[in-house]
Amino acid sequence: MSVSSTRNGAGSGVAAALRRFEVMAFVVGIGLLILCVEVVLHYGFDNDSLAWWSPIHGVLYLLYVITTADLGMRLRWSLGRMVGVMLAGVVPFFSFVMERKVAREVQVR
């Protein structure tokens, strides 16, 4: 793994943080798609059969935000960058893109 050879001396920590971030970005990306279906069902069809998902997705998103902050702190991201990546988790499909981008970037370092 190329990430383990970063200059920070906390390389293995970064690798693990990146892994956690990637997992949560994926989970939140999928969760957000489920949430979109839920919203369409709720407002479009007055159907609340998926309504139980929204609070669970809230918790998952919180975990995503935490892993983002953890990774961002380790990589000395600016606050704007960190918040930007966090917000990427609320745009459908964008968290997948962001996850790829961040992973590539970390591996280049």
Partner: peptide, 22 residues
């Protein structure tokens, strides 16, 4: 469900403070 949303808003607020401190 709405209690969960309420708690989540507060947890996010707390998290913002923690992040600042970190």
């Amino acid at each position: 469900r709405n209690v969960a949303y309420a708690v989540q808003w507060w947890v996010f607020a707390g998290f913002a403070l923690v992040l600042w401190w970190k």
